[in-house]
């Protein structure tokens, strides 16, 4: 295993895709297929969430089965703010990130004391607690969830139109991916990947291993919170279902399909999974059987995920 190093052609490809995405809403509008703007926004939001998990899992080597908790907390922060009349995105989105990030910091501080499978289980336990907390909190709608009646404004501009929200999500994803790319190659990224490869050695070298891990875990949580806040605005609802452990499982599946530890792994995984769902569901109601078989095939025959087919992570 070695450090992540981006290939030049990937950057070119990313730019081309970005340009195509910028033109997408107008194109769909002309084709009278505006439903797909919302769908594309959803895909990008999940790409963001999966990428945040990829940072924790792929670069940090921490198998968290509770990532949906941060995703859900972000959604609830947005919904609570917006219901209280605070609708400025420049305030709400950073706040959602901050709360989700701090929560991740607290969860990480306890969970990172454990290793391996115990870590998987304790993150799961925290996510379950958060889930039950929101299910029971009648103040925030309990099982019904908390509706978002009016979408965010960004610098005064309303995101009520689907295209506007799409561009904001696209912007958020672009910035995040740029930052992650920087982060992975910076000192922090190198260290965190080195810890993934050999924790004992890094500890012996005097690196504050726990602190690095914790920082990585919290950044991942914060970005998941951002994705959650955006999703609440897209679907108009923050519901406890976002926090269920199967949601964590779905995010994990996205990352693994896409390619663990590849910068674009989360994005590719989200796109592949949601497109498969959209297409397969139309002609086979029991599409989960197909998905399950595909996942098994990935595990058995393409253990490095789809992004591995394109990317470089020379062993």
């Amino acid at each position: 295993m070695a450090f992540y190093r981006p290939a030049r052609w990937q950057q070119t490809a990313a730019l081309v895709v970005l340009a195509a995405l910028l033109a997408l809403p107008s194109l769909l509008d002309v084709l009278d297929q505006s439903y797909y703007i919302g769908f594309a926004t959803r895909v990008l939001i999940f790409a963001l969430a999966a990428s945040s998990l990829n940072l924790v899992l792929g670069f940090g080597g921490m198998v968290s089965l509770g990532h949906a908790a941060f995703f859900g907390v972000g959604a609830y922060v947005a919904a609570i703010c917006q219901q209280a009349g605070l609708g400025e995105g420049l305030l709400v989105l950073p706040l959602a990130m901050a709360v989700a990030g701090l929560f991740a910091l607290a969860v990480g501080a306890v969970s990172l004391r454990t290793r391996g499978v115990y870590f998987i289980m304790i993150t799961l336990a925290f996510a379950q607690m958060t889930y039950y907390l929101f299910v029971s909190a009648s103040l925030w709608g309990g099982e019904d969830g908390l509706p978002v009646y009016e979408r965010l404004r960004l610098g005064g501009i309303s995101l009520a139109g689907d295209a506007a929200l799409f561009f904001v999500v696209l912007g958020a994803l672009t910035v995040t991916m740029l930052l992650f790319s920087r982060l992975a190659q910076a000192r922090f990224g190198r260290t965190i990947q080195a810890i993934r490869e050999n924790e004992t050695r890094m500890e012996a070298l005097g690196y504050p291993v726990l602190r690095y891990r914790l920082a990585c875990f919290a950044i991942g949580g914060a970005v998941a919170g951002l994705a959650g806040a955006l999703l609440a605005n897209l679907s108009g609802l923050a519901s406890p279902n976002l926090l269920q452990w199967t949601q964590s499982g779905t995010l994990l599946v996205m990352v693994i399909i896409g390619g663990v530890g590849y910068l674009w792994g989360g994005v590719v995984g989200a796109v592949v999974l949601l497109l498969l769902e959209e297409i397969l569901l139309a002609w086979f109601a029991h599409w989960h059987i197909v998905l399950g078989l595909l996942l098994l095939a990935v595990v058995l025959f393409a253990p490095k995920g789809v992004a591995a087919l394109f990317g470089r992570r020379d062993d």
Binding site: L57, V63, V117, I289, G292
Partner: peptide, 24 residues
């Protein structure tokens, strides 16, 4: 012989298959 991640994914896949098959 595989790592925990592969086990989580494969058995998660089994859950999906089992649930849908039972429904079918």
């Amino acid at each position: 012989r595989r790592d925990h991640l592969a086990q989580v994914l494969a058995t998660f896949a089994l859950i999906l298959i089992a649930n849908e098959s039972v429904r079918l």
